[in-house]
Amino acid sequence: MIALVVAALIWVLLHVGIAGTRARAALAARLGEGGFRTTFSLASALAITLLVLAWRSAPTAVLWSVPRPLGWVLVAAMLAAFILFAGSLMARNPTSVGQGGALSAEPAGVLRITRHPMLWSFAIWAAVHVVGNGDSASLVFFGAFLVTAALGMPSLDAKVAARDPQGWAGFAARTSILPFGAVLAGRNRVAWRQVVLPGLVGLLAWAAMLHLHPVIFGVSPLPY
């Protein structure tokens, strides 16, 4: 378990302690933007490999059991995660806003729901597996991804705001970190036609994973 905790800390520190801080700017200035991206990608690949290997070999203990009704809620939550992930691939990535006038454009698709659809998809995925598995090793493993996604949202906001403060202020006013936050506050509205395609793609991917999950991971996500 110690190896798993260390691997989880390495993953979190790499993405929260470097990617979204002044350390990134310092390293990028020394290595160049391309050099930093390459080095960071290699470090991330190594970190996630260590994390997965540590998780597979870690001893674990059951911490709680999940009631069947809650199990179905978790299955439904994963549908939302798949839709947000699909939508994030079809919308302008928040890390690229501020380039080419993207900040002045009206948010489209799932960006109207949240300006961090991909990070929310990872956060939901991680939270579902923390709750659904209910064991100590999963708490550490999936918890590392949950922490990274949750802390990554304000960190990403700060990075893009520093790039274009005026443009970001307008973009942030029309969007929200919390899903439907800007909509409920009256600062935006959901254009349902723009989320039909992400919804269909997410639904198909969700259904495929429900079918393939026992084959790939050896356990069914359905709470039979």
Rank of each mutant, 00 (worst) to 15 (best):
E106K: 04
V110I: 10
L111I: 12
L111Q: 11
R112A: 01
I113A: 01
I113Y: 05
P117K: 00
M118F: 14
W120N: 12
S121G: 15
S121R: 00
S121Y: 06
W125Y: 14
V128K: 13
V130H: 09
G132C: 08
G132V: 02
G134M: 10
G134D: 13
S136M: 13
S136A: 15
S136W: 14
S138W: 08
L139C: 04
V140M: 04
V140Y: 08
F141W: 10
F142E: 03
F142G: 09
G143F: 00
A144D: 12
F145M: 13
F145V: 12
V147P: 03
T148F: 01
T148V: 15
L151A: 14
G152D: 11
G152K: 01
G152A: 11
S155N: 09
L156T: 14
D157T: 06
K159A: 13
A162N: 09
D164W: 08
P165H: 05
P165E: 04
G167Y: 10
W168I: 13
W168C: 04
A169E: 13
F171P: 01
F171W: 14
A173G: 05
A173K: 10
A173I: 03
T175E: 02
S176C: 06
S176L: 02
S176T: 08
S176K: 00
P179R: 03
F180R: 08
F180D: 02
G181S: 04
V183C: 05
A185R: 15
R187T: 03
V190R: 00
V190Y: 09
A191W: 10
R193E: 06
Q194I: 03
Q194G: 12
V195K: 01
V196F: 04
V196Q: 09
V196T: 10
L197K: 07
